[in-house]
């Protein structure tokens, strides 16, 4: 067995950025690169990103179908003969992938920030304790499975080459779920997940009116995505889909502004890898300042509008 198989996620036929990132990464690991595609998508185009062969499973995978993903990936892995399976570090890595690992008796490294082949073994670097430590996982089995966190590596330009597409048949054997409804967050404005600038507010905003005025106000000036602490979403000041942290969204924008957020460990887990962090807090001892690139000790109700004014003065 040899070769690296990449699970290339797509939404309704359009490949997600993780497909490009993972194929690019796989190309640096040595050996042939194969792509796995579940459902209907322009599979051959992955040749332009380095896949020498694409294994495609027909069937209805909807937005996500965990049980079908396990069964189809098992068949694709066998058909490809790959010794390594790479997948995006998204919901699939916390649901279908470990189930497949158990079926195959394979070791898995979850949500790595980087992976390498060392002496023929897959080694992943990943977080422990929600980012308060890092370490390495060496996978001793064949196949070896790893998920890689989105945005962890570079993307490539397509060469325009087309790959051979092999259609793989598979058998449903895992007990599945019927999806009754998909509830997408209301994303008026900039999408928090992919925003280049994020402004987030905490409990200290006290009311929805204040949050809308101060945080959303500054967000529209900065063309930023809006985030919130759990204390803010729990209080109903901000929407649950806007929660940043261990139980919410993980973001890594160029600029993250935390206004009236104390910097609890669980909040930091969702934004600590932002390039520049700005903290605005009345308490100079707030833990958020230990992680901030720039800090202003002050009242957010004064500082945020002043930032909006200063930005407008630039234009």
């Amino acid at each position: 067995m040899s070769g690296i198989l990449v699970l290339c996620d797509h939404a309704g036929g359009a490949f997600k950025p993780t497909a490009n990132e993972l194929l690019t990464l796989a190309g640096t690991l040595g050996g042939p690169v194969f792509a796995a595609v579940l459902g209907d998508a322009p599979a051959a185009t992955l040749g332009g990103l380095g896949a020498s062969k694409v294994f495609q499973a027909a069937g209805s995978f909807g937005d996500y179908a965990g049980a079908a993903t396990v069964d189809a990936l098992e068949a694709i892995l066998a058909a490809s003969g790959a010794s390594v399976l790479l997948a995006p570090g998204t919901y699939v890595a916390h649901d279908a992938l470990p189930r497949l690992a158990a079926r195959l008796g394979a070791g898995m490294a979850t949500d790595c920030s980087s992976v390498a082949m060392v002496d023929g073994k897959l080694v992943g670097t990943r977080d422990w304790f929600a980012g308060r430590a890092q370490g390495q996982v060496t996978v001793n089995t064949t196949p070896a499975i790893a998920s890689v966190a989105p945005n962890s590596g570079p993307k490539s330009e397509s060469t325009g080459a087309e790959a051979e597409v092999v259609s793989v048949s598979w058998e449903a054997k895992t007990p599945g779920l019927e999806v009754l409804e998909t509830l997408a967050p209301s994303t008026d404005g900039v999408d928090l997940n992919t925003a280049d600038v994020v402004i987030a507010g905490g409990r200290s905003l006290k009311s929805k009116e204040n949050f809308d005025g101060v945080i959303r106000g500054l967000a529209s000036t900065l063309r930023a995505g809006v985030g919130a602490s759990r204390a803010a979403t729990d209080a109903g000041i901000a929407d649950h889909s806007e929660q940043v942290g261990q139980t919410g969204v993980t973001v890594a924008p160029s600029l993250y502004i935390a206004a009236g957020i104390s910097g609890a460990i669980q909040h930091l887990a969702g934004m600590r890898t932002s390039k520049v962090i700005v903290a605005i807090n009345t308490d100079s001892g707030a833990p958020i300042f230990e992680h901030a690139t720039y800090g202003i000790v002050g009242d957010l109700f004064e500082v945020c509008p002043a930032i909006a004014e200063a930005v407008q003065a630039l234009d």
């Binding site: 890092q134 370490g135 390495q136 996982v137 089995t141 300042f289 000790v297 004014e309």
Partner: peptide, 24 residues
């Protein structure tokens, strides 16, 4: 099936700076 090790603290962020002065 896996071996874990080489634990280390996360890469340190460069020290930050507090900006003094009135809000504006």
């Amino acid at each position: 099936r896996t071996a874990e090790g080489s634990f280390a603290p996360p890469p340190k962020r460069p020290a930050g700076r507090i900006i003094e002065g009135e809000a504006a």
